[in-house]
Design a protein around this nucleic acid. Structure first.
Length: 604
RNA sequence: GGCUCCAUAGUUCAAUGGAUAGAAUAGCGGUUUCCUAAACCGUAGAUCCAGGUUCGAUUCCUGGUGGAGCUACCA
């Protein structure tokens, strides 16, 4: 169990204060942070908060604490004071020892599992079965999968879950359009992925519906009225009622079309590299939701309006009234989500937390969901957490399906992999590999570029997806990181070919500690931080922290690699150390990128 | 109208209330007889506005301005 260096130093500084000034400062008064690049030192104590306690100027306070610390701690080499900042420099032996400790850990970065803990549920993806997945879904899936991986790395039990929105008026629209205009077309007959085919009929419905409305407007009807009374809409609504009533023809059609969609989704999920432990279907959970609503209605938690629709009054909470069942008795989105939440709680005998990876346009929905559950008597609704991620926009603005500006998930993946192939062929580094090996590497690079491009951004923020920039493989990109990994692997391969070894010899220790060069020390520092970054990413549900860490690590390694030779180093201890440094860097890149769902090739 | 979120180089992104606000990309200029140049180095360029709290504010508070989202018997 490695202790955070900052925590150790803070504790020591606290002791020093007690000795010097007779009082132990509060924890938050002891601020230890990495020393900024332009100053000499490794860690810095900010002494401003301590000046009152010391009754001295910042400089005097820092000086006194520095002197005391150096006396007490053998691993502090020297200190210096700049204004109110006490910069501490640790000894080379300290860094060396710390490095060897983490180097010898096979699973460095992971926290041992806490066996009996209740699971963390992570819901992500949540597709509608009426159209194929697009760029927005990609962000959702990547964040969800990565957050689940990060939580696991922090020792939590994780259940990856998905709610498939497989019923509702939107599904009926595509069914209706297929019935009317498809002439029995199937994915096989059309040679098309099932989700794409169904999506086309959803679009077709919208087009025909608009035509009807336009016609009715010409006859002098208001837009709102026309929208409600258009015959196509009425047919779709009737179909939804028939579906809830269990009418066989409707159910058969529904099952047939959904099965096409699932086949298409499975393919997309497989390519994205995401999976689920348990999938829920709205067509099953909505009933549970309706029962909950009916029960709550009896308990007078909810109320009925004169047309028979069921509502919850949230005005006491500063919100509005919210519909839970339509006048015709059919369920809405909220009804289903209530049922799903309760069912999941029961299925897992409770949970530690339930994280919903859902777009920020649904902030209101989740606010309501939590309150309604609480009103219904489910105290655990506090454990629901909406990981509200921002929208993906294109440089031209929002994606609009009607205007054909939606970026299709499959198309995008194809495009990225194709770019990776073109670029690799141009560089010619994979000459001599079989087509299958090449294809695998192109896929890894293309997908790595896509995933990293999306995950490096703070999930909570809206992001702009610029297709041109996304296929740029230089700079802060996935391929840049993958490239460094491949380079490290190449060095290690060569070292092995030359019969070199760099593992510690049993019992002999590592010999006299060699003095660390600046670049080596910086690299060690960053490597030592990894565990802490994984922990923080778990607390914040933020893959971006891992992504940015990997980039920082790789950048530092590339500088080290550029400035110092590894295999050409004459001093044996030094050479072995650099090989170990390279190996661990490679391992950490592999682990870190793995937490983002990104594979790193051994050569590229 | 109400509620929520956002605003940082030309552009895309960073920065637990701490020192001279970091990167990438685009621009300009360099580095390869040597472990993978998808690399490395140099140069130039930014905190929306006005107040407030603080020893110290990109960060916290108030008020503006600009943008996004929600406020559906859609999901």
């Amino acid at each position: 169990m490695e202790l955070k260096i900052e925590a150790i130093l803070a504790e020591k500084a606290g002791k020093a204060c007690k000795e010097l000034f007779g009082e132990l400062p509060a924890e938050k008064q002891l601020q230890i942070q990495p020393t900024r690049k332009d100053f000499k030192g490794d860690y810095t104590l900010v002494v401003f908060p301590l000046t009152r306690l010391a009754g001295k100027s910042p400089e005097q306070t820092a000086e006194a604490i520095g002197e005391q610390l150096q006396k007490d701690c053998s691993f502090i080499n020297s200190y210096n004071v700049v204004k109110g900042f006490l910069n501490l420099e640790l000894t080379g032996a300290f860094w060396k020892d710390s490095f060897e400790k983490i180097f010898s850990r096979e699973d460095y970065g992971f926290q041992a599992a806490a066996g009996d803990e209740l699971p963390y549920l992570v819901e992500y993806s949540s597709p509608n079965t009426n159209k194929p997945l697009h760029l927005g879904h990609i962000r959702n899936n990547l964040i969800g999968y990565s957050v689940a991986s990060i939580l696991k790395a922090n020792g939590h039990n994780v259940v990856k879950t998905n709610i498939v929105n497989d019923r509702g008026i939107h599904i009926c629209k595509s069914m209706l359009a297929w019935q009317k205009w498809a002439n029995g077309e199937t994915p096989d007959s059309a040679g098309m992925k099932g989700d794409l085919l169904v999506g086309n009929y959803y679009v077709r419905f919208d087009k025909e519906f608009k035509k009807q409305v336009a016609g009715m407007l010409e006859q002098g009807m208001s837009e709102e009225e026309a929208g409600k009374k258009a015959p196509l809409m009425a047919e779709a609504q009737q179909m939804l009622k028939d579906w809830e009533a269990g009418k066989p023809e409707v159910l058969n059609l529904w099952e047939k079309m959904n099965s096409w969609v699932y086949k298409g989704f499975d393919e997309t999920y497989r390519r994205l590299g995401v999976d689920f432990d348990k999938i829920y279907y709205e067509s099953e959970t909505y009933k549970h939701g309706r029962e909950l609503v009916e029960k709550a209605l009896k308990e007078k938690v909810l109320f009925t309006k004169e047309n028979g629709s069921v509502w919850v009054d949230l005005r006491d909470e500063g919100l509005d009234e919210k519909l839970l069942l339509r006048a015709d008795g059919t369920a809405v989105y909220m009804t289903q989500d209530l049922g799903t939440a309760v069912q999941r709680y029961e299925d897992n005998n409770g949970f530690e937390s339930h994280i919903y990876v859902v777009g920020n346009e649904q902030n209101y929905h989740f606010q309501v969901l939590k309150i309604v559950l609480k009103k219904m008597g489910f105290d655990w609704s506090d454990k629901l957490y909406h990981l509200s991620y921002g929208m993906v926009e294109l440089p031209e603005g929002k994606m609009k399906s009607r205007e054909g500006t939606v970026v299709d998930a499959d198309d995008l993946m194809d495009e990225m992999i194709k770019t990776a192939r073109d670029m690799s062929e141009e560089l010619g580094k994979l000459d001599g590999y079989t087509d299958q090996e090449k294809k695998k590497i192109y896929t890894q690079i293309g997908m790595g570029a896509l995933k990293y491009f999306i995950l490096k951004i703070d999930p909570r923020k809206n992001m702009t997806f610029n297709p041109r920039e996304s296929v740029d493989f230089n700079g802060n990109t996935g391929p840049f990181i993958q490239y460094t990994h491949a380079r490290i692997k190449s060095v290690l391969r060569k070292a092995r070919e030359q019969g070199l070894s760099w593992e510690a010899e049993a019992g002999s220790g590592y010999g006299e500690p060699v003095a660390l060069l600046d670049k080596e020390k910086e690299l060690v520092k960053i490597l030592l931080n990894f565990r802490e970054v994984v922990s923080e990413a778990g607390l914040q549900f933020s893959p971006a922290l891992i992504a940015n860490y990997c980039y920082e690590l790789v950048k530092e390694y590339n500088q080290f690699y550029h400035d110092h030779t590894i295999l050409g180093e004459k001093d044996e201890l030094q050479r072995k150390f650099r090989l170990r440094l390279s190996e661990l860097t490679g391992r950490v890149i592999n682990t870190g990128m793995g937490l983002l769902g990104i594979e790193v090739p051994d050569r590229m």
